[in-house]
Write a protein that binds this DNA or RNA. Structure first.
Length: 901
DNA sequence: CAGTGAGCGAGCTTCCGCTTGACTT
């Protein structure tokens, strides 16, 4: 039976639209993008693997032509779509009408290759029956310029991420990442912390009083704050800069200290006051726009305490079950049906007096908004109240929030009056002193009756009312009480998930579908960690951001994405082209330095210097260094040699709390967490257990008068031991290592047993043998040791690893294939070739077919053994080369340092 | 950052955006 095939992006949307279109249409979804650049080495097509640009999946030499692949988990879905297309007499590409949606439509076309049937592009911005029917009636052509713009974005992000990340692997730490969005997000967090570190606290005092307007007034008492003295404003928090100094010129502000404030209180003891001025202004507040992704995330955080990712997954469930419209949107527009539903609900719940005459519309505040969807609102042509939904828990609370916000957006303004009053009097010493009071009275609540936005950090909320008595100029008032209060200025607050997302959106960085995952990325990389709701940058982020700022300033500038968006708009409009824009970004032009020359010219970045941060100024002799195992401090030892003593920095110590005082304290007690186990019966020294760079170990505490070259004995805990359970007995055994097992009667050499980097082993001169268990270190006797030495040195691990699984015979080599565990993880081998299991494989799930496939791939790369022999010969040379390279870098560093000094 | 004797299957990390289940517990 022939039908028209309609493809949208989301399965939930496909269900709804299928209902609207009815007979004759089959509506399916693409489930997002269906193709992408190859994500990892395993996905890169064989024919481009050897090209220098192969790892990007983009033919940089040939117009930046992308190589797209259908990822493995999308293949079955694509064959499903192909099957549906076979019986279709028409294809409607109904993906979202934005840059990404247009690209998905084109990918579908390019991959499905429909033969001999009409293909139409169908677009709509709201999922209502009339809108869908109208869209089906009025299809358009694919906008290829828009697709070009999307490809430019995609390729630029790939070049950025895959070119800059490896720089970090080499210079900072393996596995790190950089990207157009995540690096700027990280930079924001780091910059905020830098501001906090540079912040100098200012302290200031003021006076607060309760004033009495007389028995006839209601309210009779009201609060007021000191405003000015002899015509000069009293300095408050906002008058101080981050340097702790007054921003205003002298004379314009009075800076009160404690003595000044308390003196003024005393001088005002008998003062009579009168009202100097009363200024009333109308207060009017319009409702907030309906939710889009970012505002929903912010309010879910402020009011419901949900993280961005939790809010999104709860919203996803609401969407899939038909309670709300799509939750990843940058639009605040409501469909006509939604406006009607909201207005009906206002009339019903609050009455006609809360309903404005005309529907309210909200223009998008987001500059690069693509508006493919509606605002986030309750679904349907009439809204269900939260109680009518039958929802519970988080879904209920989030639905209620969305429902209230949507209804409130169609209500009248809140109106009232705000009043500002000045009260003056003369102090005993003749100074003229003015207090100020401000109040707000809301006479008509309007939308505030339904919805009040949450606030950050104690700011005044929209519906706060502070009533003042009805005062008039010249009225006499008295002070019922006066108090001097001390205050300190506060550094700028750290970002939270919600405020960082807001900042990113304001700067046009990131998209609704990615805001929550951006936070996830910078948390996962260890750039940032959470302390309560605050995002705190790790020292690692300081290193990385410093490198990026110094060497990729354009790419990590806050304006980079906004500039890119402008270019993409030009491409979408057909005024610029992909190739020349990407060429400028990658190779550079007269105006900008390209990414490739930047990366190629990085030879002598001094990784050491990047990771070093002076504490308390350059002359303190104390610095923080970011090492492979986390941050640590270097400071002067007892003889004053700078940077000679080291101490760990606790993982959860925020950078702005690492002051010179704190660093000195940490250096004075570098021990960290020590567990005292008791006294060594022979040496009389205290034995302690602690965590070190190589894991938990025990050691002796040397007395204070120990010579400088005295080193305490140490020993790693066996794997069977733990810091929680270790006893003094265990520790004494560990400290007894290395243990002399005996003397080889043949050579006269001593055989010792000890623990090392590769586990327990025996040592006789330069000849070593691995042991199978750590306990053998304590128990092995001379006879057994000699027996071990009698055998030839084992290749590989001491015990030949038994195969984990036998799979059967390889179809090509006719050899049995087995799975083994190796140093680099599990692998399959037929005895000649070895192939490591990929990410998606597991020992349990692997089949003979898959193993044969892996081995075939491996074989295709050429003879491993010959290659291995070749490299074995080459290897020493390579090592030497590396060493020389290191030396050269070191020399360069010294030169650079010399130049500087 | 406690200190330490090999000889081996290398292979891969990473971007941003668009979407859901697939897993396991």
């Amino acid at each position: 039976m022939a039908h028209k095939l309609v493809i949208v992006e989301s399965p939930a949307k496909a269900r709804t639209i299928g209902g609207y279109l009815g007979q004759g249409y089959v509506v399916e979804s693409s489930i997002g993008h269906i193709r992408d650049l190859p994500q990892s080495a395993a996905e890169i097509p064989a024919k481009i693997k050897d090209k220098w640009w192969g790892r990007f999946g983009v033919d940089i030499d040939n117009g930046f032509e992308p190589y797209y692949v259908v990822p493995r988990d999308k293949k079955s879905h694509m064959s499903k779509l192909k099957t549906l297309l076979k019986d279709a007499d028409e294809l409607y590409l109904a993906t979202d009408e934005d840059r990404e949606g247009e690209a998905i439509a084109w990918h579908l076309l390019d991959e499905l290759k429909p033969q001999g049937i009409p293909v139409k592009r169908m677009v709509f911005h709201e999922i209502t029956k009339p809108a869908i029917l109208a869209a089906a009636e009025n299809p358009r052509e694919l906008a290829m310029d828009l697709v070009e713009a999307q490809e430019t974005r995609r390729i630029l992000d790939r070049l950025y991420g895959y070119e800059v990340s490896p720089v970090l692997w080499k210079k900072v730490m393996s596995g790190l990442s950089a990207g157009r969005v995540q690096s700027v997000a990280t930079r924001m967090v780091v910059d905020r912390e830098r501001e906090r570190m540079a912040f100098r606290v200012a302290s200031y005092w003021d006076l607060e009083g309760t004033f009495d307007a007389g028995a006839s007034k209601e309210p009779r008492m009201f609060p007021a704050k000191l405003h000015s003295i002899d015509g000069a404003r009293v300095a408050g928090g906002s008058d101080f800069g981050p340097d702790g100094l007054l921003k205003a010129k002298k004379g314009e502000r009075v800076h009160l200290d404690r003595a000044g404030a308390e003196g003024l209180v005393a001088a005002l003891r008998d003062t009579a006051y009168d009202v100097r001025s009363v200024e009333a202004k109308p207060y009017r507040r319009s409702p907030y726009a309906p939710f889009r992704t970012t505002t929903l995330q912010q309010e879910a955080s402020r009011k419901l305490g949900m993280s961005a990712s939790v809010a999104m997954s709860v919203a996803q469930r609401l969407y899939e079950n038909g309670f709300i419209t799509y939750m990843r949107t940058d639009s605040t527009t409501l469909s006509d049906a939604a406006v009607g539903a909201a207005r009906a609900q206002v009339r019903e719940l609050y009455g006609a007096e809360y309903l404005p005459d005309a529907p309210r519309t909200y223009a998008s505040k987001v500059k690069n908004a693509q508006e493919a969807h509606e605002a986030i609102r309750p679904a349907g042509d009439s809204f269900r109240t939260p109680a009518q939904t039958g929802l519970t828990g988080d879904q209920f609370r989030l639905y209620e929030l969305i429902w209230m916000r949507t209804v409130a957006s169609q209500m009248k303004d809140a109106v009232g009056q705000s009043v500002s009053v000045r009260i003056g009097g003369a102090a005993a010493d003749g100074r003229d002193v003015v207090f100020g009071a401000s109040g707000r009275v809301i006479t008509f609540h309007g939308f505030l009756k339904a919805y009040v936005e949450g606030t950050e950090g104690g700011k005044r909320s929209d519906d706060d009312q502070v009533p003042l008595p009805d005062l008039h100029e010249g009225d006499a008032v008295s002070a019922a009480s006066l108090a001097a209060n001390g205050h300190e200025t506060k550094p700028p607050a750290r970002f939270t998930e919600a405020t960082l997302i807001k900042e990113l959106e304001d700067r046009e960085i990131g998209r609704p579908s990615t805001y929550a995952s951006i936070i996830g990325t910078i948390l996962n990389r260890g750039y940032v960690y959470k302390k309560g709701t605050a995002l705190v940058p790790a020292w690692l982020a300081f290193s990385v951001i410093r490198l990026l700022e110094e060497h990729f300033p354009r790419q990590v500038s806050y304006e980079f994405t906004a500039g890119m968006e402008d270019v993409l708009d030009e491409i979408a409009a057909g005024r610029k082209d992909r190739e020349s824009e990407l060429a400028e970004f990658y190779f550079g032009s007269d105006a900008v330095t390209g990414l490739k020359p930047l990366v190629d010219g990085l030879g002598d970045i001094d990784a050491r210097e990047l990771a070093t941060f002076p504490i308390g100024g350059p002359d303190s002799g104390i610095q923080l260094r970011v090492g492979r195992y986390g941050p640590y401090l270097e400071g002067p030892d007892d003889e004053g040699t700078p940077f000679a003593r080291r101490a760990n920095v606790p993982d959860d110590l925020p950078p702005d709390e690492l002051t010179l005082e704190k660093a000195t304290e940490l250096l004075a007690n570098p021990a960290g967490e020590e567990i005292e186990l008791g006294v060594h019966p022979e040496s009389g020294l205290q034995v302690v257990a602690k965590n070190g760079r190589y894991g938990p170990y025990v050691t002796e505490v040397l007395p204070e008068d120990a010579k400088k070259n005295d080193r305490p004995r140490t020993g790693s805990l066996f794997k069977s031991m733990s810091l929680d359970t270790i006893t003094l007995d265990d520790a004494l055994k560990l400290l007894s290592l290395p243990r002399v097992v005996g003397v080889d009667p043949e050579s006269g050499e001593e055989i010792t047993a000890q623990n090392g980097r590769y586990g327990p082993y025996l040592k006789k001169g330069n000849d070593s043998r691995s042991l199978t268990s750590e306990d053998q270190l304590l128990t092995i006797g001379l006879d057994e040791a000699l027996r071990i030495y009698a055998q030839p040195k084992q290749r590989g691990r001491a015990a030949a690893a038994a195969p984990l699984k036998e799979l059967g015979e390889d179809p090509v080599s006719k050899q049995p294939i087995v799975v083994k565990a190796g140093r680099f993880g599990e692998y399959v081998t037929d005895g000649e070739y070895n192939a490591t299991l990929r990410k998606d494989d597991s020992v349990e799930a692997i089949t003979l077919e898959r193993a044969a496939e892996l081995l075939a791939e491996r074989r295709a790369k050429g003879p491993a053994k010959k290659a291995a022999k070749k490299t074995a010969k080459k290897a020493p040379a390579k090592k030497t080369a590396k060493k020389t390279a290191k030396k050269t870098t070191a020399k360069k560093t010294t030169k650079a340092a010399a130049k500087k000094s």
